[in-house]
Nucleic acid binder design. Structure first.
Lengths: 165, 165
DNA sequence: TTAAATGCAAACCGTTTGCAGTGTA
DNA sequence: TACACTGCAAACGGTTTGCATTTAA
């Protein structure tokens, strides 16, 4: 039930479904022009955009979308397990496609830049800790906040992007 | 502006400064009745209360305090490094006195209960990872979400308290 | 005495939602 | 055609803030 005969404007711009769009269809989501748009923006993103940023990028491609829809879609995608909501501090939720694989983040406290990393050793350790406490690990969150290596000891950290409100 | 020269109600209830109050004085904070009150509530807390909860407990001891003051004080204490702001999901910030020592949390996804734990091995690993990426570790966040050990495989997780908005 | 802290209520800000209109399946 | 989706703007919930008043030092 995917191929209709009258392609929408978005289809014309990008006839081949984006990576995320394919996932949406797999999960049985009704694909509207707006959803296709967001799926495409998410597929092309290499960072961790917040809703405002997603909206900004989407509007550029097709103005017929509102922030409310971005909020609703992003929530839907989260429920379907297609994206994960992240909180790097800053008050806004940020989104991370799950098909990029399991990873953690290191946030540069001076620039706010976010690096992704994996660490099998940590995964083992996390499981071990949970087990030690009598639990089975069902999820976790590891975020490192760092400053570029040559850390000339500052009296107090200049600008921090650490956990905030 | 009720009582004039007599010791305040809070003073009578607890003549000796609380643990956190002592820290406040050390850091040179002006100690008002409200701040003493919050300091006391935090000193006696064994959990990770949010502002609403702190206010609720404070009001019980002395009604002459407002939520705004709790917000302001808790922010001040965070700046002074006396408490740490935490985000366990749920939309509200929760507060954790730093003098309890460095630790992480395991959240029981079924009950929402929060356990504290330490793990020197993890600390070493976190530093190593940061270093590997070319950073000096200045902070971190590790939260484990787990379910009580005998995990009889449920078709789908019952109630989750995982990261939310 | 005086700068700082407080209470109150309004302002903020990210996010959600009710409703009427639109579009997909 | 039906029902889900969208846009708009109003509502929300936690947090912050301006201003007049109180208070610690």
């Amino acid at each position: 039930m995917q191929s209709s005969d009258a392609p929408t404007r978005a289809d014309l711009d990008r006839p081949d479904p984006s990576r995320i769009e394919r996932l949406c269809v797999e999960r049985g989501l009704k694909m509207t022009g707006q959803r296709r748009l967001i799926a495409r923006v998410l597929s092309e993103a290499e960072d961790h955009p917040d809703v405002e940023e997603l909206y900004r990028r989407a509007v550029t491609l097709d103005a017929r979308i509102s922030v409310a829809t971005v909020y609703r879609t992003v929530r839907l995608l989260e429920e379907k397990g297609i994206v994960e909501r992240r909180d790097f501090g800053g008050g806004r939720a940020r989104y991370d496609p799950t098909d990029r694989g399991h990873h953690h983040h290191l946030i540069d406290v001076d620039t706010g830049r976010v690096l992704e990393f994996e660490d099998p050793e940590h995964e083992k350790l996390a499981q071990a800790i949970a087990r030690r406490l009598g639990f089975t690990l069902v999820g976790q969150r590891l975020e490192l906040f760092g400053r570029k290596a040559p850390a000339n000891p500052p009296p107090r950290p200049p600008r921090a992007a650490k956990p905030r409100s």
